[in-house]
Design a protein around this nucleic acid. Structure first.
Lengths: 212, 212
DNA sequence: ATTATTATATATCGATCATTACAGAAAAGG
DNA sequence: CCTTTTCTGTAATGATCGATATATAATAAT
């Protein structure tokens, strides 16, 4: 860290990556300091010197997750030209991320701190806020589509966003319970099948945002 | 329990009900013995004499949940005459159960043991099996509809079942994060909007199982 | 070379975890 | 009555929890 004194003998980024995977797999409360120090290959004092505490390490792990897999998912959404394509990319990219051979399944943010325990109040609040922001992000993309005329005026973008975020969150649980990528993609496509009905003027709204 | 000896001074059923609510709120790993004994109003030896261990108490709590709220949800599904009505009842009953002022939000079975930790392997396997059985149950209802001619032959009932179970599981997370009943019902209706597209011969299949 | 600074390894801290020994209390059977 | 049986309250068990004190090792500055 500093330019003086004994240099650190481990790679902070790589240690954080391992910590992220351990928290992702076992959850915050299910992960012990022994799990972390063993998995990261460092001693407890090194962990505390580099990350502050178990809780702060978890925060750093979440931040890393958001800046990698999270960025990929939201990047896929941003790259799509139509609103339908954006939601489709959001769900399909999620399906790909949620089941990989070398990574824990599902989403770290979605699966963390779903229960309010004695010691996780602050952490849980932060994760609830992150999950809530996902809905806001989706709604913002849909609102843009309404402004563009791609979706009919009066479309309940918040409701639509909540629906698709709910599906993605359910996909995390499905992935945890063993659903493979094909199954997750089928779930995504099933949710997208509702697209035409979620606009107020019924199906067949004339615009760019259509399934096909 | 027995007919001789000092009689039990607490109501076993009521104590189990309290234990269920505590596990439901805080999760298995997030619940301590002190939480349980305090909340149930009994001492640790009484708890062990009546329920065996913390893990067996959790099993009993899950069984109670399944036989009460769970039975209501699946009862609503069974009562419906059409397949569409059955899925609608399943989701709407879930929406009602998932947000009540006096009960923890979401579903005990869906939210429990999503992470694999060191000591919860057996418990997690049981919960994964219970969640999997939900999909099987939904698929069986849809298969009946195919046999009845209510849904077109070749309908992928497993895929449909996985989709609607995924939505219900996502609704548990949404409820945990503060979604009220109206929001949950909107999510349910959004998912049902996909109904017509999930049959193989496209929308407008002639049969009883239609949204309207 | 000496000092200052920082990281590491070992060992340990008090707190809390789930579980249980133990002794006394409350019932039924004799 | 007394014995047997079962439950209750208190206190303690060993294990594990997250977090640190301490001593030593490794670097830069002087």
């Amino acid at each position: 860290m500093a330019d003086r004194g004994r240099p650190r003998t481990f790679d902070r980024e790589q240690a954080l990556l391992r910590a992220m995977e351990i928290f992702w797999e076992k959850g915050f409360e299910g992960t012990s300091m022994v799990d972390l120090t063993t998995g990261m290959g460092i001693g407890a004092p090194s962990l505390y010197a580099a990350f502050g505490s178990k809780e702060e390490l978890f925060r750093a792990a979440v931040a890393l997750y958001v800046s990698t897999d999270g960025a990929d998912i939201w990047g896929a959404l941003a790259k799509a030209e139509t609103a339908y394509g954006a939601i489709e990319a959001f769900l399909m990219e999620s399906a790909q991320k949620f089941n990989r051979p070398d990574k824990p399944s599902g989403c770290l943010v979605v699966l963390s701190a779903l229960h309010a325990t004695d010691g996780n109040k602050a952490l849980r609040a932060e994760l609830v806020a992150r999950r809530s922001k996902n809905t806001t992000n989706l709604a913002a993309r849909l609102a843009k589509a309404v402004k563009n005329g791609e979706l009919p005026p009066g479309t309940d973008v918040d409701r639509m966003a909540r629906f698709y975020v709910t599906v993605q969150q359910g996909m995390s649980i499905q992935a945890r319970d063993g659903a493979d990528r094909m199954m997750l993609e089928e779930i995504a496509r099933s949710a997208l099948a509702a697209w035409g009905s979620l606009a107020p003027n019924g199906v067949r709204y004339v615009g760019a945002s259509q399934p096909l």
